[in-house]
Design a protein around this nucleic acid. Sequence first.
DNA 1: GTCTATATAATGATAGAC
DNA 2: GTCTATCATTATATAGAC
Lengths: 221, 221
Amino acid sequence: MRSALRSTKSGRSPDITARAHLRDTAIALFSHEGFRVSVRAIAEAAGVSPALVLHHFGSKDGLRQECDTFVLARIREYKEDAVRRSTPGELLSRMAAMDESAPLVGYALRSLQAGGELAHSFIEHFVADAEEWLAQGVAAGTIRPSLDEKARARYLTIQGFGSMLLDLALNPPADPGDFAAAMRGYLARNGLPSTELLTQGLMTDRTMLDAYLLYVVDPPA
Amino acid sequence: MRSALRSTKSGRSPDITARAHLRDTAIALFSHEGFRVSVRAIAEAAGVSPALVLHHFGSKDGLRQECDTFVLARIREYKEDAVRRSTPGELLSRMAAMDESAPLVGYALRSLQAGGELAHSFIEHFVADAEEWLAQGVAAGTIRPSLDEKARARYLTIQGFGSMLLDLALNPPADPGDFAAAMRGYLARNGLPSTELLTQGLMTDRTMLDAYLLYVVDPPA
DNA sequence: GTCTATATAATGATAGAC
DNA sequence: GTCTATCATTATATAGAC
């Protein structure tokens, strides 16, 4: 009721409210410990009472949704600013290198594993980028054309993030918050083979692809 | 105390005990709903009291460990029997096609996402297989050699499972228990682009690989 | 081996004072 | 906006009878 009055009274940035502080704390904790952290833990980290958290967001789910939309919005901002031809991994690395935005990356990765709505938006965004990037490469002659460009863009995106998620789950970094270090570990382990695969493929000839096209895409009656 | 007596009395297979039944029920439920299912739910599904479950396994963690070791052992058995040149995906599909072993596959996949000890054993096993399979292909001339065969075997394994896990998290099957159907969905979405990637790679020339080798593997001083 | 009853701890959420 | 106090639920786990 009185919030309008209060907002006019405050001359500072409208986002440095207690509510925003709570949301940022929640993102940091979700990123660091996963979505199982309790409302109590978030409240304690923020130095307020648990009741206040629920007062602001209604429920833990409400808090989650606010975090989701905020993280997605911020990642979109970063992507607008970033150079277009950077790969998703490079973009995330650069984001994570900044202390302020590292939790955003961790949060996004957590939600990818959880598979919610943010995960979909997140992936769709990178799929769209990949499609454009691939199309430019095909036009320039540096990338081979595909029989299904959309499917390839989606596959490469899922393949990249999926490999990273599983690799990090199997080799958990000492500090879960230091995403940049985690990313370095991933690249140290997989940089060479993934580059080999992208540049040379695995097979020496087309027989496997031809078999797939013949028996799966256009099966004999 | 009296269990030795009972086991001698029973002339049936030593694994069809109530304990084994409980374990199987737990695996089915873990596979279907994830590791957050309560001991209560498992007990109810098995038609016993929650206390009995804990009586047998000491704790929920004890139950988890017993399920882990059992699942790993069974998957190893299947792999021994299976034809050697089948891919991991084919193997799991064949396993999942059998009603009896489908929960094992689901359980293994869940534990991959959780990233525990079973996940490591599971992956290591498939990495070892991949390495042998790749070596045979290289010897036969059907597969290109790699500068780091071990790293490639690990990467391809992680890449395959990681892509599948993320794809399934983003496109959850109607029936989480029907792994075979889930796998068909995954292949329908990604079969073509993954086959293209394996046979042809993505790039039209070696410049990306050469750049990687020059600046990352052997960086200029 | 199996049960009932209970202890204990943690969670998300609410009520109401200030 | 923020708190204290409390509720209702759920979880794992234990004690002890049968």
